[in-house]
Write a protein that binds this DNA or RNA. Structure first.
Lengths: 230, 230
DNA sequence: AAGCGCGGACGTACGGTGTACGTCTCACGT
DNA sequence: ACGTGAGACGTACACCGTACGTCCGCGCTT
């Protein structure tokens, strides 16, 4: 009676949060049902009252992360800046939950929260005057870049970490003929500033979209309202 | 003496190939040291004479897949088409080893074969007249797109497969206000033609690079040789 | 108030996994 | 002929996901 230890009620949400915390603290490989249960000071099988299996838990983790996307819609801003903000929002959650990202990318998120970013992207493309098929393809291209940029970055960091450990042993004696450019651009390659790389590629895509909009992919808008500013 | 059963000598290469075959046949989750050993009709621990641990085996798988990249250099072709060919080569191996791709993207490839595509991309950017820093960023943007396009595609297919199973139960009653565009563009979203989506994004990036080259990022070439045909 | 039903926490148990360690066999250099 | 070293192998251990049965306590019905 010193304290009736009112544990805060086991819940799917608490389980998912514990899983996320564990992954961020010790990496995705460290996640196991037993570890999560220990984290919550609960028996392993109790988890299964709230989560059908481990895969579902991982899907919950993915959803939790995606839900962290900040998608405030500011109607005053241009679609270009809106698109930039959307892709950057992806980048921000990737920064907040770096070790969860592989899980996000390798599991489905079939709830409404997963659709929200898609809706946002389609709305932007629509606002820019692109027709439906083009809007979908734009959304997919931006998503592909957002995903790939993050994956590439973590891969790169794994690489650099590995190189730091081994002291770049087998790296220096590359065939200087075949790998001429890799060697020549060594400094640029080593100077890995994710932010710059990310923004560079994003600028490329946005610029391409602007050009596309200018060259007449905005049939929808034009047909509806006539050519305005020409 | 009926047959001295001359098993073809256990080798790191044979182990990796068996692993790749197993993954492509039954999925990455089915891969275990025991299964690989069974595949080769060998005791489990014999594998460890050629591979230090499972992670190293997966890295071997990743390297094997990357080694399948077809990078013929045709000096007659423009850098634009060269870049297209390079990114498409990524796509081709993704098509040849679909179930291995997640492994490729989540493991380091620190041998020369991993550098080869990078060298190729840098050579192309150099040929287009971009300076070193820009060349590196271009290479990274293209790589990010190649990776992300593939990841997104498999994710999408997992999604569609799931939808086909469940019959899109909880999909129809979305808030029609919030998800206006998703609902309106339903047909375009359902019609998932990976090839078209992929080429669309690739065209965007190449177009952006052409524009970038035109607007004067080719300082290197200009300074070195004077303005020739320009 | 008494009885009942049920959801949820828990323990046990099984088959599978990665791999450390020790043993045995056999081809080869001396 | 003999040592030697590489490599195939078996055993063993800690850990994993999860099927199944038990049991307790809360909330409803009577």
């Amino acid at each position: 009676m010193v304290s009736d230890t009112p544990r805060p009620a086991l819940t799917r949400d608490r389980i998912v949060q514990a899983a996320v915390a564990l992954i961020e603290r010790e990496g995705a490989d460290a996640l196991s049902m037993r570890r999560v249960a220990a984290e919550l000071d609960v028996a392993v099988m109790s988890l299964y009252n709230h989560v059908p299996n481990k895969t579902a838990l991982l899907e919950g983790v993915a959803e939790h992360v995606v839900a962290g996307l900040e998608l405030e819609r500011d109607p005053a801003v241009s679609w270009q800046e809106g698109a930039r903000a959307l892709v950057r929002a992806f980048r921000k959650v990737a920064h907040d939950y770096p070790r969860c990202m592989t899980i996000v990318f390798t599991h489905k998120v079939d709830t409404a929260v997963g659709l929200r970013p898609m809706e946002r992207a389609l709305a932007l493309a629509d606002a820019a005057g692109f027709d439906g098929g083009t809007a979908v393809r734009i959304m997919r291209a931006l998503l592909a870049y957002a995903i790939g940029a993050q994956m590439r970055e973590v891969g790169m960091e794994k690489m650099l970490g590995h190189l730091a450990e081994t002291g770049a042993k087998s790296w220096n004696h590359l065939d200087p003929e075949e790998f001429r450019h890799v060697i020549a651009y060594g400094p640029e390659l080593a100077a890995h500033v994710p932010e710059t790389d990310f923004e560079f590629g994003l600028d490329l895509l946005i610029a391409a979209l602007e050009a596309l909009a200018r060259t007449g992919a905005e049939r929808t808008r034009a047909a509806g309202a006539g050519s305005g500013t020409g």
